[in-house]
Design a protein around this nucleic acid. Structure first.
Length: 103
DNA sequence: CGAGTGACAGGAC
DNA sequence: TGTCCTGCCACTC
């Protein structure tokens, strides 16, 4: 089980209606400082079908900008479809941040 | 194998 | 959650 495998496994474990931060995923992987690698792993995203990368956001609860999914708005729509609440342009981390203990 | 790079986090101001 | 600076890990050339 490589670091990337762990990252993909954890990301695919995120339940609908919840989001996780890169730091959160990195922490669950075992190294809180793997946040950059988490972003890199999702950037590679070998299996977009099984890896809901749109459920992974930065600590602010938003995406870095327009990239995959087809745009930043696309991610917002996808999360809203999942039941994630939004506050302005960010995710309601208070209610939708995945702790990893809910699954 | 060294240097550069990246979808970040955390602390300080 | 504003901005600036630093650290860290894995991957590519």
């Amino acid at each position: 089980m490589n670091t990337f495998e762990k990252i993909y496994s954890i990301v695919s474990m995120i339940p609908p209606g919840k989001v996780a931060t890169y730091g959160q995923v990195a922490f669950m992987v075992g190294n809180p400082r793997l946040s950059r690698v988490v972003g890199y792993a999702l950037h590679r995203n070998p299996s977009p079908e099984t890896i809901p990368c749109f459920r992974v956001v930065n600590r602010f609860g938003e995406c870095s900008g327009s990239f995959a999914f087809g745009g930043e708005d696309a991610q917002r729509v996808l999360l809203e479809e999942d039941g994630v609440s939004f506050i302005g342009n960010r995710v309601d981390m208070k209610k939708c941040q995945w702790t990893g203990e809910m699954i």
